[in-house]
Design a binder for these strands. Sequence first.
DNA 1: ATAGTTGCAAAAGTTTTGCATTGTA
DNA 2: TACAATGCAAAACTTTTGCAACTAT
Lengths: 149, 149
Amino acid sequence: MDAKLDKIEMEMGARPYSQTLARLREAGLRPTRQRLALSRLLFEGGDQHVTAERLHEQAQGAGVSVSLATVYNTLHQFTDAKLLREVVVDSSRTYFDTNVSDHHHFFHEEEGRLMDIDGAKIEVSGLPDAPAGTGVSRVDIVIRVRASD
Amino acid sequence: MDAKLDKIEMEMGARPYSQTLARLREAGLRPTRQRLALSRLLFEGGDQHVTAERLHEQAQGAGVSVSLATVYNTLHQFTDAKLLREVVVDSSRTYFDTNVSDHHHFFHEEEGRLMDIDGAKIEVSGLPDAPAGTGVSRVDIVIRVRASD
DNA sequence: ATAGTTGCAAAAGTTTTGCATTGTA
DNA sequence: TACAATGCAAAACTTTTGCAACTAT
């Protein structure tokens, strides 16, 4: 079974994958070929904001054969496992963020690009209490920007 | 042509529609039967957050025959005309808000319900400048809440 | 007439699901 | 062998578009 993982490593290229592997193991997700490939694309390239379609393209480009459905399923599994965070900024596309720490976003409406804003730097005052019987699960701030010419 | 509008009024019920009519006129939208009906459903019921599907159901319930596509088109026309504001909180559904003043939202994730928060009451500090070459078009704050039992 | 609008059927996207296949103990 | 997890084709959504029918001048 480690022989099998070595085989997967061979197929994926020479770079170390131990961190990627550990990440999946910790999340209780089997290190399948598809998950390893998507993990590496996601987590070895620094903070990223990807759509399912974009990640699917990246995978194809890297010579990994995965269906778009599997990309969706995998993104949701990673999100459930707290490896990713879903960012809701555009009603037509869902973005997934590899940065899962407390932060907010700039969203360039024309280009569809996201940029992180460190959560520690922002202070919000005057927020009313959550409605009776509910608790706050998260506060999301999105600063929508457009080209200014 | 006013006779025609009278006819539409008759069909829609006895309540006055002059405000609804004026609203459409000002926005440069012809007061068609469908638009009048949707306008009344939207703007005569106080602040509301509707999805296309919900508004479509309301229209059917009120005996007005409109296709879902027309509901979508109308919601977007109203949004372009600043009669409505699109609220992006859920990647699977688009909400439209009849409150177009400066404000933010509570979003009940489990029930899919939105509640307005007066924008004047909230103060955000520490926001970084918009990226070079861009200007802020809007700052959206969404407080996601869930049942706390 | 005719130039411009409107409303909807059909098309296009995006996302989810059902289940054959694969992997594990 | 049995049992569970995986990955994808097909289905189900939501949303947009193209164009026939309608409106106003």
